[in-house]
Write a protein that binds this DNA or RNA. Structure first.
Length: 118
DNA sequence: CATCTGACCTAGT
DNA sequence: AACTAGGCCAGAT
């Protein structure tokens, strides 16, 4: 086995979940910001992949609060049909117009800026 | 096993 | 300012 120290993969997943759970209600973050906050700048893609495994996790991970850097709900297609991303965001007071978060610039929550991670 | 795609972003031209 | 290319890693075909 010796495939590779899971530490890397596992830690990444754990970190992504941790950061995502820190996103305040009514706020949104972006994949790149999260990736950068855990020291994996450029690995924004993986963040999305890992978040896809956040369903059914405890405590629940508000993956719906994570959008791309343009505020577009790019991951809405991966959400359960009975609980679309847009619906969840609106339930938290986040206005969504079509496929984009309204006032995204003001609602954007950057883990590095807001929390100043080490 | 090779190739493409994917909840993306940065940087170079 | 628009477009292209590269990077990241794992799943799907």
């Amino acid at each position: 086995m010796a495939e590779m120290p899971e530490t890397s993969k596992k830690q990444f997943q754990v970190d992504v979940f941790a950061i995502t759970r820190l996103i305040p209600e009514g706020r949104v973050s972006s994949y790149g910001a999260i990736a950068a906050s855990i020291g994996s700048s450029g690995a924004a893609r993986r963040v999305g992949w890992v978040l896809s495994g956040s369903f059914g996790t405890t405590p629940p991970v508000p993956a719906h609060r994570v959008v791309n850097r343009l505020g577009l709900l790019t991951g809405r297609m991966h959400f359960p049909e009975n609980m679309p991303m847009e619906n969840l965001l609106r339930a938290e007071g986040v206005e969504v117009e079509g496929n984009r978060v309204v006032n995204f610039d003001a609602l954007h929550w950057d883990p590095i800026v807001e929390c100043e991670f080490d």
